[in-house]
Simulated assay, not measured.
Amino acid sequence: MTPPTTQVEVPPSHRWGFGAFVLAELVLILSAVFLVAASGPVSDEPIPPVVIVVVTALPTMLAAGVAVLATLLRGNGPTIDLRLQWSWPDVRAGLKLGLAGLVLTAIAAAVWAKTVGKLDPTSALASVVDAQPLPLALGIVMFLYTWLIGPACEELIFRGLLWGAIERLQWSRWAALVLSTAIFAVSHLEPLRTSLLLVIAIPIGWARLVTGRLPASIVAHQINNFVPAVGILLMSLGLWH
């Protein structure tokens, strides 16, 4: 299917590029390592629920903050540089592609599980929560993070900062789609799930491609994350294992 031709205004040039994306990724990885190390030595004792929430959410939020800061210091601000202009048509496009992505993800997950075997195609976070359910209050926090906040932060980094760095090199939007999708999948550092993450990322990147703006991909990502977010909430309530 050929994406519809969308008239997208060319944003003013900015002075940030791949270096800003690399910095954001370094902040994400190093902050996660620091938080894990600061939580104490590895032992057979259960991980404190607050630590699970902080280690999961804070690194991605810090990395998204770096993305925004880069546009403020070396560009035109996040609204222009990261293509954050809001419009209802973009939201509707994100909803449609997000729902299509849910179907595609369900099919891919079934194929993945059948191919890999007994391994569960759920995320590392879901595995941790399944082994040690969170208190209800923290479960609600993780539900909101997994559904709404995490996807928005990841889109700022990958379909915002990384996509803009690729555009700055005057590469095609198809190159931006392919590279951002591949790097998104690999950067989750879950090798067994990389192929599944590639499939999950395609509708999200497509939303960015066809609209030329970030809100559509944010909405598509949030729709895709709704089901796993509900799963985490149900695990926290002890209603699903």
Score class of each variant (00 low, 15 high):
E155Y: 03
L177P: 05
P135R: 12
T56I: 04
I47N: 10
L177S: 06
V8N: 11
R15A: 14
W86K: 05
E155W: 02
V210R: 13
R83N: 12
G65D: 09
R74M: 12
L95N: 02
S217F: 08
P41F: 10
S195D: 13
I107L: 14
L72S: 07
L197R: 01
S180V: 12
L189E: 13
S123H: 07
A70E: 11
G205P: 05
S236D: 01
R208V: 07
V129E: 06
I29A: 15
A57V: 09
K96V: 15
T105R: 11
I204K: 00
L239W: 15
L119N: 10
Q85R: 15
R92A: 09
G205L: 08
P3F: 00
T79A: 14
P78Q: 09
A38V: 06
I183N: 02
P12N: 03
L156M: 09
D90T: 13
I204W: 05
G98W: 05
L177H: 05
V36Y: 10
L239I: 04
T146H: 02
S13N: 13
A216G: 00
L119W: 08
T194I: 12
A20N: 07
V111I: 13
W112I: 03
A220M: 05
I107D: 00
A32S: 15
E190S: 11
V186D: 06
V128A: 14
L198K: 00
W112N: 02
M61D: 00
G17L: 11
A108E: 00
E45I: 10
R168N: 11
L125G: 02
F143I: 02
W147G: 00
E154Q: 05
D130H: 14
L234T: 05
V36Q: 15
P191N: 04
L192I: 15
V22K: 09
G164I: 01
V227P: 00
Q132S: 13
V51F: 12
A207N: 06
L237S: 09
L104N: 06
L209T: 07
G238C: 02
A220K: 03
V128W: 08
L237E: 07
S187D: 11
T5W: 03
G40M: 11
I232Q: 13
T115Q: 11
L177Y: 03
